[in-house]
């Protein structure tokens, strides 16, 4: 069978589908001061998994606000800088009008994912941290 660290080089998704891969990628991103990219990506996935129902309305609103505040509101933040202005205002509108939809962070997540696929992921595969691990 293919060792996990070789599968990590196949695609970003195969890396993010493995706990050890995520940990190593996160250590690398932390060195580069951009671990927020990964945390945001997972926060978006986690948010989407919360099914809307009467018992978690408050939690979903609180969480949407927390994600917005931590990653998007500060225009100098690493995540915020990679998200298109139109996407940011869409999310801001959803939060302000309390229109909390499971898919409200999907576009932002796609933009961050594209950035990781083009930039941080290929750099990670050439990094000392990955090569030493293999």
């Amino acid at each position: 069978p293919t060792p996990p660290y070789l599968r990590w080089a196949e695609s970003l998704h195969s890396l993010l589908d493995d706990q050890d891969g995520i940990n190593l990628f996160r250590t690398f991103l932390k060195q580069e001061d951009c671990a927020d990219l990964l945390d945001f990506w997972f926060a978006c996935s986690g948010f989407r998994k919360l099914e809307p129902n009467n018992s978690n309305e408050e939690k979903r609103l609180k969480l949407a606000k927390a994600i917005y505040k931590k990653y998007i509101l500060d225009n100098n933040g690493i995540v915020s800088r990679q998200i298109k202005p139109a996407t940011k205002s869409f999310i801001k509108d959803c939060v302000m009008k309390q229109q909390i939809d499971p898919a409200m962070f999907d576009q932002a997540q796609t933009e961050i994912q594209a950035m990781m696929e083009e930039n941080t992921y290929p750099v990670f595969l050439k990094s000392d941290i990955y090569l030493e691990y293999t």
Partner: peptide
């Protein structure tokens, strides 16, 4: 009451793959 950070952490962890 959950703090915002706890809520975020819980959300991030919920999306991570389980250890195989």
């Amino acid at each position: 009451i959950d703090s915002e950070d706890d809520l975020l952490q819980e959300c991030i962890s919920s999306a991570m793959p389980k250890k195989k």
